[in-house]
Design a protein around this nucleic acid. Sequence first.
DNA 1: TATTGTTATACTCTATAACTATA
DNA 2: TATAGTTATAGAGTATAACAATA
Lengths: 140, 140
Amino acid sequence: MKDPLDNLPGYVLRRASAATLAELNQRLEPLKLRHADVAFLLLIDEEPGISQSEAGRILDIQRANMVPFVSRLEKRGLLDRTKVDGRSQALRLTAAGRTKLAKARRIIGVFEASLMNRVPEKMRPMVLPILMALWKGPES
Amino acid sequence: MKDPLDNLPGYVLRRASAATLAELNQRLEPLKLRHADVAFLLLIDEEPGISQSEAGRILDIQRANMVPFVSRLEKRGLLDRTKVDGRSQALRLTAAGRTKLAKARRIIGVFEASLMNRVPEKMRPMVLPILMALWKGPES
DNA sequence: TATTGTTATACTCTATAACTATA
DNA sequence: TATAGTTATAGAGTATAACAATA
């Protein structure tokens, strides 16, 4: 039976997100990482020394939820924390974290290419602009 | 600070979905409905007498998770179940369910229009095809 | 044998409130 | 006063396994 909600962009957006997320998590399973882990590692790699709160703001993860998130990755030896003042801590990848991230990058690369590949070639340049517009609105 | 993941379609897809979902749930809050409730009511309205399992297959909700989902809406008087054979039950909207859905439809309409509105006009015809392609791949 | 509805359960993700120590 | 990190907790949402009744 055809899904009668297929003409609602909001609904299709959600289904597309859920389906592709599940696929990505499956691809990352050999590394024992989830999609959110990789996003976080990518962010730390690009902004070494970033604080936990700032990372949470960028990734839209609440301060409270960052705590177990960070400490799990720290326990696995993928990142470390160094106090920068009495409150903040600077997050940096360890060598193991960088090695892990390099592997994750390859998986992400294949995954993102596969995503683009299912879109007809003519429309590919519109994918990112459209998704950004849906996310953040017309400006920005 | 700019989000350094903004060039990854998969990541932006997830953020766009999460942001718009949260917005839709907020718009639906006065009706005490969640986005999944409305999708379900829309489906029953278009396929009256559909079974619980079949609805779950279409909406990608597991049989086991349909149980509390359906019974909550039934307790609120929005739908009813009638046995069609010893196993299956036909789902149908009640009068109250149709009234509620009519209100939800107006909210959905405004929401979907607002979604399209944040996309530059030239790209709007591509929104649904691109999202469908990301969801289900090139064929279909 | 396969399917429907069901129960029980667990895990992830997300949300809120409150506390502490620092700035 | 505002912020960073933390604790505790609760609520969605989602996943699996197993069972009884029925097809």
